[in-house]
Design a protein around this nucleic acid. Structure first.
Length: 870
RNA sequence: GGAACUAUAGCUCAGCGGGAGAGCGCUUGCUUGACGUGCAAGAUGUCGGGGGUUCAAAUCCCUCUAGUUCCACCA
């Protein structure tokens, strides 16, 4: 299609059609041009659990903006795609699907189950790829990776083995967060704490050797079957006498001792604590100090075991309910106090996490964190944008705990550990026939932590690794600073000795129109495809990435997506106008002839230079909202509202030569705008650019400032604009239709400006529609005239029958007051010795010039007032 | 219990040391041959309150208030 044949309305469906396939097929996104400087950015691999949502669109669009701009700036850009197997999330989803068919993973067995998950993976990775295409991400599919690929799996095993051999991975019994639904351990950060209502139950443990007993408060009474002691503070005078005595656990025949430990807070509760080493991390520590047994009272699925006696087999909360009823009936329950307390829930399944003693694999974090913090103090640190996220990152590392990495799941990287009796072997492959491999898999983040280098071929020394690592930039959400960013950072430092990326850009979360988080329970998730189908993906991309400051949450607003559509429609029509002019003038793509430029041309070219500087400054700082705002102002207010209107004069009355040159300027500016906006709206800009340049914009060079266009007199045309604006105001105020011709009088003192206006009257004529214009430096007779004072001129329009003298007087008086207050402000500044001695010279000069200008204007106003009154 | 973020025009948000901004909405007029329009005009906004630093503070520091979030959590 030709530019001139564009329909009047921006049709995003037609625009988006086929472009992505065209880009990918032609290898525009394939990295590897060795003649250029490399630039690498990896995608945060989405989970293969389902469709992408608006958060992904924001996240990946930000990356795409960076990648596309760098590519245009002449870099060999690698934007590497890939997906995450997401062990627990995916396994949970697949199990849920199977459950609907009435089968469990145990019915299928490990192998058959994994086949099912791989089928799921094939399906959803295709869904995700389609969505990447919809979003328009400039990904290099020749390098796509999956965390369970052979290469990445090899990297995972290698790292595990190396860390084990170097003592950074160990196996041990610890209290971990247990997900009773998935029957797996969780790491600390996979637990979400929520305040829920519970109760402190005060329970009497009767003495085994006499009357009475001790009262203990607990929120989890069902764990009492795992108690091995009661504990009091050694100096607590209330209880000292009981230390060493024994109490019965109610409903059992087990007697447990009363011990003393300074860990007890005498002020809290009754001052007596039950010790349950297998179900509480603090009690576990106490148990170690006092060499206590560590009995578990629950099965892996959260039901009670034989220790619970008559409650055996009951689900833990059912047990709690029945137990409390029984305790009350039998007089053991001394008090119930309702409390709101934070209870851990599994991030994936949502069930309440059970702290549970269990044999698991851990990463010892102390050294890794210390080395990383050391790196962050030096030159080779990871830079956070915005900077404040580094503090959050550092705080976390300073308070880090060992990382539980084993998961009792099937979907994931199998732990390369083998057992024969008490013997443990860690390495590639089984050491012999009578060895058994660990059944467990690794935390999904263990492989994600290697993502920036495992995807490039590490541990092999591949050319890609050599060329693109460390990567240049990582863009991710604030929720992943701990989960992912920190782990990539310490693994990269540990394994490769350097940072994984130079900069990490952290963006906020997307919220709904009311500012709430998107969540399944609220059902307020907006479907990305729904919005795309309504406004096109470019509008959505533009809105999401320009809606606010980096790091700040984005509130979704359909109105703003629509505003983005409006903007693109405006640009569309700008292009359409230009296409029509090209066609009318038979423009053949001639270059700009500087000698032929008129005042408006010079102005817009100078403004373009300013916009390029501003846009680059903000793009470089990842302040896309500000960059976009500057481009918007230029494209809409300056280019469309003023310059395009001025070209209408040239096209209707200019010479053929001048028309051609106007086309050249229009083309030049439009191309620059398209390029500046291409990172935000790739489809639209490609559509128009293709029609103008007949090549893809994706690989075109980024626009640069042309010093030749920094015309010193570029601002002069603004006097014309001021006059036009003033006339429009007068027409509006006096309700005079544009069709009615008027007489204009101009008083301009400066001879150069007077000459300039005389030479550019055609621009004035078209937008003021005067019948007669008088320009001189003579003072204007104010009677029966509407008068406006501009900084360079005094404008008068005689409108005998319409002018209200009182009104004019009032207008001028108001103007006088305003001017007086401005002058007062300037004078106050300039009479302040502190200001004169301490303010920068530039600022002083600026204020001095302003004062001069204001005084001149005030003089004009006063003369007019005198005339009007006299 | 720590920590961070936010508080600016009716709404959603930019700005973050030198005269208060944008989008949307609303009111009014015009619509001139690119435009689901566009152009023009219209906001008495204590830039959350109070201190401080500075010649100069919406902008930096302290403090208070309100809200959001993260981390750590005592049985």
């Amino acid at each position: 299609m030709k530019l001139k044949d564009l329909p009047t309305k921006y049709d995003f469906n037609a625009v988006e059609e086929g472009k992505y396939e065209f880009w990918v097929k032609n290898g525009f996104f394939t990295a590897g041009d060795l003649s250029k400087k490399p630039f690498a950015i990896v995608i945060p691999p989405p989970n293969i659990t389902g469709k992408l949502h608006l958060g992904h669109v924001l996240d990946t669009t930000l990356q795409d903006i960076v990648a596309r701009r760098k590519r245009m700036q002449g870099y060999d850009v690698l934007y590497l795609p890939g997906m995450d197997h997401a062990s627990i999330a995916t396994q949970t989803r697949v199990e849920a699907m199977l459950r609907e068919e009435g089968i469990s993973r145990y019915d299928l067995g490990r192998e058959k189950f994994l086949e099912k998950v791989w089928e799921w993976k094939e399906y959803y990775s295709e869904v995700i790829r389609k969505q990447w295409a919809t979003i328009g991400l400039s990904l290099d599919y020749t390098r796509e990776r999956f965390t369970l690929d052979a290469g990445l799996s090899k990297a995972v095993s290698d790292v595990f083995i190396r860390m084990y051999n170097e003592g950074l991975i160990y196996r041990g019994e610890r209290i971990i967060n247990w997900d009773v639904q998935s029957k797996t351990a969780l790491s600390n950060i996979e637990v979400i704490y929520e305040d829920i209502e519970g109760a402190f139950y005060s329970i009497l443990y009767p003495f085994a050797d006499g009357d009475g007993g001790l009262v203990v408060a607990t929120t989890r009474p069902e764990t009492m079957f795992g108690d091995v002691a009661l504990m009091v503070h050694p100096e607590d005078e209330r209880y000292q006498k009981y230390i060493g005595r024994k109490v019965y656990i109610p409903y059992t025949d087990r007697a447990i001792p009363v011990i003393a430990d300074a860990y007890v807070d005498r002020e809290f509760g009754t001052g007596v604590v039950k010790v349950t080493p297998a179900h509480d991390p603090n009690d576990f520590e106490v148990g170690l100090r006092h060499s206590l047994e560590r009995p578990l009272c629950m099965h892996e699925d959260g039901t009670m075991n034989h220790l619970a006696g008559k409650y055996e087999g009951l689900e833990r909360f059912e047990c709690r309910k029945r137990l409390v009823q029984d305790l009350e009936r039998d007089g053991y329950l001394r008090n119930v106090e309702k409390v709101i307390h934070a209870v851990g829930h599994s991030e994936r399944t949502g069930v309440i996490v059970e702290p549970r003693l269990s044999l698991q694999w851990f990463v010892s974090m102390e050294k890794l964190a210390r080395d990383l913090l050391e790196m962050q103090r030096g030159e080779g640190k990871v830079h956070f944008i915005p900077e404040r996220f580094e503090k959050i990152f550092t705080n976390w590392l300073n308070n880090i705990q060992d990382w539980c990495i084993s998961r009792q799941l099937w979907w994931g990287h199998r732990i390369p550990a083998y057992y024969r009796g008490e013997e443990v072997y860690v390495g590639h492959g089984s050491p012999g026939p009578d060895w058994v491999q660990d059944e467990d898999t690794l935390d999904t983040w263990f492989s994600s932590a290697l993502w920036p280098f495992s995807t490039l071929g590490w541990p092999e020394k591949t050319p890609d690794l050599e060329r693109y690592f460390p990567t240049d930039c990582l863009v991710t959400g604030s929720d992943l600073v701990f989960f992912w960013v920190a782990r990539m950072a310490f693994q990269s430092k540990y394994l490769l000795g350097v940072r994984p990326f130079k900069e990490v850009v952290i963006h906020g979360m997307i919220r709904d129109e009311e500012g709430r988080k998107f969540s399944k329970s609220l059902g307020n998730a907006t479907d990305m495809m729904e919005i795309r189908d309504k406004y096109g993906i470019d509008s959505l991309r533009y809105f999401l990435t320009t809606a606010g400051a980096m790091g700040q949450d984005v509130r979704f607003s359909e109105e703003k997506v629509e505003a983005a559509w409006n903007y693109i429609n405006k640009l569309w029509n700008i292009s359409r106008y230009i296409g029509l002019k090209f066609s009318e003038t038979a423009y053949r793509g001639e270059e700009i002839d500087v000698k032929l430029l008129n005042a408006a041309d010079k102005w817009i070219l100078k403004k373009l230079n300013e916009t390029l500087a501003l846009a680059d400054e903000f793009y470089d700082k990842y302040e896309f909202g500000e960059a976009a705002k500057g481009i918007y102002k230029f494209a809409w207010d300056e280019f469309a509202s003023w310059y395009l209107e001025m070209t209408k004069v040239v096209f209707s009355e200019g010479s053929a030569e001048e028309k051609t040159n106007a086309c050249a300027v229009l083309r030049h500016v439009l191309v620059a705008i398209l390029k500046l906006l291409h990172p935000f709206m790739p489809f639209f800009t490609e559509e128009i650019y293709m029609m103008i340049a007949e090549e893809s914009i994706t690989k075109s060079p980024w626009p640069e400032i042309n010093p030749e266009f920094d015309f010193p007199d570029a601002k002069r045309i603004e006097t014309v604009y001021d006059i036009i604006t003033a006339v429009r105001n007068i027409r509006a105020e006096k309700d005079v239709s544009f069709k009615k011709e008027i007489i204009i009088e101009l008083q301009i003192r400066d001879p150069e400006i007077r000459e300039f206006i005389v030479n550019n009257l055609r621009f004035l004529q078209r937008f003021t529609n005067y019948r007669e214009i008088m320009i001189s430096d003579a003072e204007i007779e104010t009677e029966q005239k509407s008068v406006t004072v501009l900084s360079e001129a005094v404008l008068a329009v005689p409108l005998q029958e319409l002018v209200d003298l009182e009104e004019e007087l009032a207008k001028l008086l108001e103007r006088e007051q305003k001017m007086l207050s401005e002058i007062e402000r300037c004078e106050r500044l300039l009479n302040n010795p502190g200001f004169l001695s301490k303010a920068p010279a530039e600022k002083i000069e600026l204020e001095t010039n302003k004062l001069e200008d204001y005084r001149r204007q005030l003089e004009e106003i006063r003369k007019l007032l005198a005339g009007l009154r006299g």
